[in-house]
């Protein structure tokens, strides 16, 4: 009893310091007014509405699968940034850096966290999509947000795919060889694709191994140095930026479409 009292007193003292107030503005959110302010005044929490439908908060409804996906995205961003301190995206160094990350770096589980996190994120995205489908939450007015979601699903898979090349081991190079060779089969734009050989000027083929869609993707005819660098940049900068932007749109739309769906 006494302990609780002194704990409360301590809490009170902390939230009344100038430092705390300068950061959070409100004290302990123990009145409705303060609860509202706590959410409104915080840029992170402000992703949420102030009040939510009770059904939408329940685990049994959302399974928190979307939230989990977002959290895993944050985990991946963080561990990925740490990996970037050690990893060099060149053919000479990439594989060795991977070995060092495993053997020489203290607490060498960042690579594990990053890799398993990526797998987990793919799984949670699927489960999230499945949940959204099964509750019919894509129906009006949420059609657009479903579409934002589909793009996020594709981006998640692309993130995984581009990351798969970076260890530069046998698994990596062959998965990407096979995967990128599909681009070679794009109708018209890939040199082995349907009708590509018919695009010719004065008998010279215009779509060749040196000018087709796959070449543009890899920056070369083979999965080599250019491809590694390109995938690195796509993986670490390009796709995450787009995904982060779209996630902001996604969350914003969840709010604007009337919060988590529920029966009318």
């Amino acid at each position: 009893m006494n302990l609780e009292k002194s704990w409360r007193r301590l809490q009170q003292q902390v939230v009344e310091t100038q430092v705390w107030k300068s950061i959070f503005r409100v004290g302990i959110p123990n009145t409705n007014r303060k609860r509202v302010l706590a959410v409104l005044g915080n840029v992170v929490l402000h992703l949420h509405p102030v009040k939510t439908r009770k059904s939408g908060v329940k685990m049994r409804y959302t399974w928190c699968a979307g939230g989990m996906t977002f959290f895993l995205f944050l985990v991946l961003t963080f561990t990925g940034l740490l990996l970037m301190f050690y990893y060099r995206p060149t053919i000479e160094y990439a594989y060795g850096d991977m070995l060092d990350l495993r053997e020489q770096v203290p607490f060498g589980i960042m690579r594990e966290m990053h890799r398993w996190g990526a797998h987990a994120m793919v799984i949670t995205v699927w489960i999230h999509m499945f949940r959204v489908f099964m509750t019919g939450s894509y129906k009006p007015p949420r059609e657009f947000n479903w579409n934002v979601g589909v793009v996020l699903l594709v981006l998640t898979l692309l993130l995984s795919f581009t990351g798969y090349l970076l260890p530069w081991d046998q698994l990596a190079i062959w998965a990407i060889t096979v995967g990128s060779n599909m681009a070679r089969a794009t109708p018209l734009a890939g040199y082995e694709g349907p009708f590509a050989a018919q695009i010719a000027f004065n008998g010279v083929n215009l779509v060749t191994a040196g000018s087709d869609a796959r070449f543009g993707l890899l920056g070369g005819r083979i999965v080599g140095a250019n491809a590694l660098l390109r995938f690195y940049v796509l993986h670490c900068v390009f796709i995450p930026l787009i995904a982060a932007f779209l996630m902001a749109v996604h969350f914003w739309r969840v709010r604007k479409d009337g919060g988590i769906s529920g029966p009318l």
Partner: peptide
């Protein structure tokens, strides 16, 4: 920008 993705010299 699209053309930028297609290098002229390759080191293969």
């Amino acid at each position: 920008m699209a053309r930028f993705l297609f290098p002229n010299v390759l080191f293969e």
